[in-house]
Design a protein around this nucleic acid. Structure first.
Lengths: 339, 339
DNA sequence: CTTTACAATAAAAACGTTTTTATGATTTAT
DNA sequence: ATAAATCATAAAAACGTTTTTATTGTAAAG
């Protein structure tokens, strides 16, 4: 049984296909009776317009494409969920393409299957690809790097501000000796967070002690070792607080502190970044700076659709983090004051 | 700057468009020299075939559509991740449509934008819709209900067996007063699990007490409240064990129990379903029945693509769960026995 | 040599729409 | 009363491909 097309409807209704099209698309040029008649035939034949024929003519797919190497984990599903909802709200669909196949990626992007593109996928799309996309005026939003031109923008987290705000928060609790557990020095986020931390210290005229910057490699184990060996080597200068490069580091840090008999947060406050899922279930629950993922998703779609509608050119937006205060941080207690 | 089409390539290469098409699609009818020449021009002009023109002709989009009301939470992202990978492996793309708009859903399904459909979306698609899909021979796999005909199949978890087995496990630990924290009554899984639970009770001639069936709505908060108010209203009949409709409910349940001074698992055992990521990090680590979600994702795509390739007719597959015993369950201790 | 077969390429049809242009019948204006 | 404007609908073109059919020119067969 063949698909019912507009032709079949036209024949059955005894009109031309243009009349059927007009009736369906509410073009007010038709005799109301004709229109009604056509719509009745449409219903009787269970006709549903083929979207492919439609889009071939219009050139618009009403679909956005999200290209990524994975959708696993809380970051991604929150992002996808939020993007999807915003797409739906604006009458678009979201195409999630999970692949590492460069040919598939570029074929889909340049092949006109989507009206706009969201890219999260480190390193795979190189300068040449971006040039090709720019040439074809493919509207694009990048999530993992900064690109900006007429048809391309970026929405990234402001790790600098996050580091700065987290440090200021610790200072506001009365802490004076604040250590930072660094991640990987080649990573943008890690460096930015540290710079924010240093800026906050400088602003308050706190001395910057190089020894207070540990290397935790963004991992629980690395952080655990770094903190433990620090405590061992500098028993006289135990910090009031640790700012860990991410939540995993914070967990490692807390474990190390506990193993040496310190209480968190009574003796020492610890703050992390990311608000990973276990953060709230950890003991103590982590104070951390959360990426506003859902908000990022909405901004991405808004910006993309604005570019598609030519209401906006590509721009770079930085999203501030959100401090979630939980149990791992505490106002500094006077040493002589017994709880 | 207009899009580069096959016409432009033909003109630039001095050949017909059919020759260009043949060169691109590796039809071995062309003079090798001609082919090479054409491909060079293609490269020079940065021509990329428009997928829409292509699919209009072929009638194949090489896209599968996943229709759902949400992608949030570990179940969905694991499923989407696994389906995506399998799609990618088989040369398909996955279209994730998150919407509650019935018109959008049916328009996309019947509009031929995808070659196959995966549906997870309670209640929205009714019998009439299914009839329309069957009439149009839309290849479909349902995840939340049983449908079977030539072009439609289902892959579901055997929640009944899971509920039954989990309950039997609790009974085997010596528990007698087992409560069930229900999810949403309109959801197939929730009902099935409860039926399995009831069947196990009946099999052991345990009385079924309606008060022991709480409403947790598949959420931590809902479960927390349900358990807390139960303990408040029936202080005399505290259960030995709770079977929670999913892991989130189990967590809410344990929190509620702890807040009232009960120890898990020493005083009360708690078992959940799903084995979400935090299940193993929770304190205590959750005993739970694991859905083989990743496996389900692969089976879905396999079945769907088989139907598309006419290698298979619709079938119903039930996937058994797997009991993961962790710290939240414990053999029943005699009340007089002091640990 | 002429016919037939074949190879290589070009031309045309098709996919299902929307949109532009054309046509014929009324109505309005002069 | 005739030309112009309007209305309702039909016909045709277009979107970018693939596929089918047609047209060459050349080689093999008789």
């Amino acid at each position: 049984m063949r698909r019912v097309t507009i032709k079949d409807v036209a024949k059955a209704a005894g009109v031309s296909i243009s009349t059927v099209s007009n009736a369906l698309n509410d073009v007010d040029v038709l005799n109301p009776e004709t229109k009604l008649h056509v719509l009745n035939v449409v219903k009787k034949l269970n006709y549903v317009p083929d979207l492919n024929g439609k889009l071939l003519k219009s050139g618009k797919t009403k679909m956005l494409g999200f290209f990524t190497t994975s959708v696993a984990g809380p970051y991604f599903y929150t992002l996808v969920e939020s993007m999807s909802r915003e797409c739906d709200r604006q009458g678009y669909g979201l195409n999630v393409i999970v692949t590492k196949d460069h040919k598939v990626i570029m074929g889909n992007i340049l092949g006109g299957r989507v009206d706009g593109v969201i890219v999260f996928e480190e390193l795979k799309i190189d300068e040449k690809d971006i040039a090709a996309m720019e040439r074809n005026k493919i509207k694009t939003v990048f999530l993992d790097r900064i690109v900006q031109n007429e048809t391309m923008g970026s929405i990234i987290f402001d790790s600098y501000v996050a580091g700065y705000e987290a440090t200021k928060y610790l200072i506001s609790l009365g802490h004076k000796k604040i250590a930072y557990i660094s991640g990987v020095d080649t990573m943008f986020d890690s460096v930015q967070r540290r710079e924010g931390y240093l800026a906050a210290l400088r602003e308050h005229q706190f001395p910057v002690d190089e020894n207070y910057i540990l290397q935790g490699y963004f991992e629980e184990e690395g952080s655990y070792n770094a903190v433990k060996s620090f405590l061992h080597m500098h028993p006289g200068k135990v910090p009031d607080a640790f700012l860990a490069g991410n939540d995993l580091s914070a967990i490692g840090c807390i474990r190390a502190l506990k193993s040496q008999g310190y209480e968190v947060p009574q003796d020492i406050s610890v703050v992390g970044f990311d608000d990973i899922e276990i953060a709230q279930y950890f003991s103590p629950p982590l104070t951390t700076v959360r990426n506003q993922i859902a908000r990022q998703g909405i901004l991405v779609i808004e910006h993309l659709i604005n570019m598609i509608h030519m209401k906006e050119q590509g721009k770079v937006q930085k999203l501030a983090g959100e401090l979630i205060v939980r149990g791992s941080s505490h106002v500094k207690l006077d040493r002589n004051y017994k709880v």
